[in-house]
Design a protein around this nucleic acid. Structure first.
Lengths: 388, 388
DNA sequence: TTGTACGCGTTATCAA
DNA sequence: TTGATAACGCGTACAA
């Protein structure tokens, strides 16, 4: 029996050889007591021994002990150079690849991070996931992701499921979580970073920015520009902390100018939100709702750039001139904000940095369990463009 | 010693109790021979025994055998109801959470899928990742993701790293991969699905659509509409199979109409591409390049909707009327295509379905290693809107 | 329906 | 610098 292949590279030959070797061994001597070896040959229900070479195989072939092989792959410096080379060469020849699962069990560390986001399609999340991915990769960590669809029950389920895989740390989006989630993580002493907000209380660590202050800042900009009849297009009211903070910031800032929001609308229903793709349309719908509520509205602030761009598109269709007849502002500074005519005034957030920070904080804490790791505020910037 | 907490839920109390119990046990009797138990109390370098309750703990407390506990959590039906309830209750009380890592090692299955994408910020990928996530979740699988930044070397490194975690299957983006990657996967008999293309050869399984035919289809539409001077804005030339196919489709279709592309430009440099966010700007740059190459260009086809929307924005800035002076077409049918005035003509792809399929095919193959799983073509649709 | 025995492939510890 | 040994926590096979 041999492995069927197309092009045969040295690496492939090595692995083929390794597999063949293992099968022969089990067929002939079975001295480890394994009656069956290799799922490839078995009846399908049997999955023990996947046909991979093990450290024991390499050790035997190279004439060293198992621990030496382990050291060669884990801390190469702790092994004499000649030994190391011999082992590596043997390993290559046998197509050996260390089994992390076994290592995890023995060491109690998985080098795995669990990441929980509301949606995988959200640009904000994508950016900070990329930040985490870039940091984690150079630190030799892997990560699992799951999305909650903005539901706390799902979040709890996801966290529970992740815990069974014993990740070394966990990243959550936002700071509002169910008791079950919080209790579970705290009791397990799981290193946790909460992201996108700087207002606690936190389970453990956090990085983000002050959504409340950012919303006040951009509202103040609109007020300073002379706009007085200001509407707000919110995310659907599902109680996401950071969006609640943005709305609160808007109201407080208008309040201190003796104003109040002319109208606050939430254009999407839950179904749309879960899709998370329908937000341009949400912005357009939102504008129409605002116009129904008040004909003389002169500025619209949106909970995200996507909504705001949807507003700009709707203005274009209606022939409403921006910013002369209507000012529009968003939140996020996605690429489109700079590109869409006439340019979208918005709050620049630093999603990539949030992701990077979260990963870095986690890894620091994992390596130094006692470390006190303070909140990291990445700040925000007001970016004024043609729409206001 | 006890766990510090804010609000104490029943679940938390259970877990606290479990941890305390374990610590006491080790401190007092240490009858398993563990000198140290629980990383929380140790000096930081010691990580064995994480302080979690184990099946053995539950078994002892519930007065059953370890296997009974295992069965309760793996195949509850195979245990008498009374026994099951007793075990579950004990498990809850001890805050027990099955350790998948140990289960993986024992069973040879990880219930983990490795997903390799070029970029985490790309909308296409995000959509199909969501499809995979939704399928995998209901099938009780988790997944790891890594991005390659469009580099084959990085892809090989990522695949190698994933293999050490012994995933049950792997999803790759596209069909063009390095020999090293291919050989490794084949030799390991790893179930693999390649996505977004239906033209082989494949490592194992594939789902996607025919990019070549789709490009011909939308090109034909432009030709039928009477456009004759057609430019193309490509992704950067890094040899991504599906983009090469799109360009080939354009050329062939124009060819059979006795035409040829007026100009083909690739507006982004590699740095921009890696960011993957700068594509609106890429479209705008591309249009300007096309205009430099030929003043009487009357239609532009783009390799993606994002580029096409960038073209629309640039038209708006230049005062070019769409579609009267210039027709614009994209590829992807992202939400923005329907929302941006005057509506973007494009090819609708089915990214979510591709992701869902990929996951489903993988799980099928994992459960039935012998299964022949044919290519799944999800097709595409021409969507004509105001821009052409 | 439940239990016993053993192995999964690695790492921590301690001794040489 | 290297080796022997004992876990890590669970699932498979088989027996009762």
């Amino acid at each position: 029996m041999s492995v069927a292949v197309g092009m045969a590279s040295p690496e492939l030959l090595a692995l083929t050889l390794a597999l063949t070797f293992r099968f022969n061994e089990s067929t002939m001597s079975s001295r480890l007591g394994n009656k069956i070896r290799g799922s490839v040959m078995s009846d399908g229900s049997m999955r023990r021994g996947m046909g991979w070479s093990t450290m024991a195989d390499v050790a035997r072939e190279a004439g060293v002990s198992l621990m030496t092989v382990s050291r060669v792959y884990k801390r190469p410096d702790s092994v004499a150079q000649r030994t190391r080379e011999k082992v590596l060469e043997t390993g290559r020849r046998l197509g050996f690849s260390p089994n992390s699962i076994a290592g995890n069990l023995a060491s109690g560390r998985t080098s795995m991070i669990g990441i929980v986001v509301p949606s995988l399609r959200n640009s904000n999340n994508a950016t900070s996931i990329q930040g985490m991915a870039d940091y984690l990769r150079q630190a030799s960590y892997h990560f699992m992701i799951a999305n909650t669809g903005y539901s706390m029950e799902d979040e709890a389920a996801v966290v529970k499921a992740f815990m069974q895989r014993r990740p070394d740390g966990m990243v959550l989006t936002g700071t509002r979580h169910g008791h079950e989630t919080i209790d579970l993580l705290k009791a397990a002493h799981m290193p946790v970073v909460e992201t996108w907000e700087t207002r606690g209380p936190f389970i453990d660590m956090a990085t983000g920015f002050d959504n409340y202050e950012a919303a006040r800042r951009i509202t103040r900009h609109l007020v300073d520009r002379g706009y007085r009849t200001i509407g707000y297009i919110d995310y659907p009211a599902i109680g996401l902390d950071r969006y609640l903070e943005r709305l609160r910031g808007l109201k407080d800032e208008l309040g201190s100018a003796g104003l109040e929001p002319t109208s606050v609308v939430s254009p999407l229903d839950a179904g749309d939100l879960y899709q998370d793709a329908s937000s341009f349309r949400g912005g357009a719908l939102g504008l129409r709702k605002l116009q129904e509520a008040s004909r003389d509205i002169d500025a619209v602030l949106c909970a995200s750039d996507i909504l705001a761009v949807g507003v700009l598109f709707e203005c274009q269709r209606q022939g409403v001139r921006v910013p002369d007849q209507l000012a529009v502002a968003g939140f996020g500074d996605f690429e489109i904000a700079a590109e869409v005519p006439p340019g979208l005034t918005t709050i620049r957030t630093h999603g990539y940095q949030i992701g990077w920070n979260a990963a870095e904080m986690l890894v620091t804490r994992i390596n130094q369990p006692r470390a006190e790791i303070p909140l990291r505020d990445v700040g925000y910037d007001l970016v004024v463009r043609g729409s206001s």
